[in-house]
Design a protein around this nucleic acid. Structure first.
Length: 194
DNA sequence: CAGATGATGTTCT
DNA sequence: GAACATCATCTGC
């Protein structure tokens, strides 16, 4: 069992979340997956929603750690984040990819396909796990969407974040080697972190 | 394969 | 009115 706290800064929490298990329960059944790719976002970060202080959308990021931050991207996809760092620090970690653990058949049903494309991207995993705005601002360890902290012994890598234009020199994307890494990230030059 | 593009709607200037 | 922490699909090799 992992003891690291979500009060740690995003750049540390993003790494600590690797290997943890997301668990989603619905009336159709349970799905779960291992987190294998994350990105850190902070207030001091032109690419972050919290960069210009709290807004109606980003205020959750400035709240207490251990809450979900869910927002809609390009009008289509839900993005799942975990708020971290101490209250009033606008920091969060975006979950970019997971490996299915349980309920893969239900994920295939929701996504309409099978294989690595099930969960190898931030918008894909929320569809596979039936995550939407209902979880925004909710506590991470209560309710139908939970996080199980897990230790892992896999090698960790870090590299620049993807899909953004600002601060691309920051190595704030973290991942484990996996067939389920996000498409846009599969061929980049990450450096080993442990 | 790689690269371009349209979908689609909320947020912020 | 522009930008956007994306994805699926289409084009042309």
């Amino acid at each position: 069992m992992k003891i690291s706290s979500l009060e740690e800064p995003a750049t540390i929490t993003a790494r600590n979340l690797l290997g943890d298990i997301l668990i989603r329960k619905t009336s159709s059944g349970m799905t779960s997956g291992r987190i294998i790719e994350t990105e850190a976002y902070t207030e001091d970060d032109p690419a972050s929603h919290s960069y210009n202080g709290p807004t109606e959308r980003s205020s959750v990021m400035f709240g207490k750690p251990g809450y979900w931050y869910v927002y809609k991207c390009y009008g289509i996809h839900w993005m799942l984040n975990i708020v971290c760092a101490k209250q009033n620090n606008g920091e969060a970690v975006l979950i970019r990819a997971i490996e299915p653990v349980d309920g893969e058949d239900l994920m295939e049903e929701r996504r309409g396909i099978a294989g690595p494309d099930l969960t190898n991207g931030p918008g894909k995993l929320t569809e596979a796990m039936a995550v939407d705005e209902r979880f925004n601002g909710k506590v991470v360890n209560t309710g139908k969407l939970r996080l199980m902290r897990e230790s892992h012994e896999r090698i960790t890598y870090e590299s620049p974040r993807v899909g953004i234009q600002d601060a691309t020199d920051r190595y704030w994307r973290f991942y484990l080697k996996s067939n389920y890494l996000s498409k846009v990230a599969q061929n980049d030059l990450g450096r080993r972190r442990n």
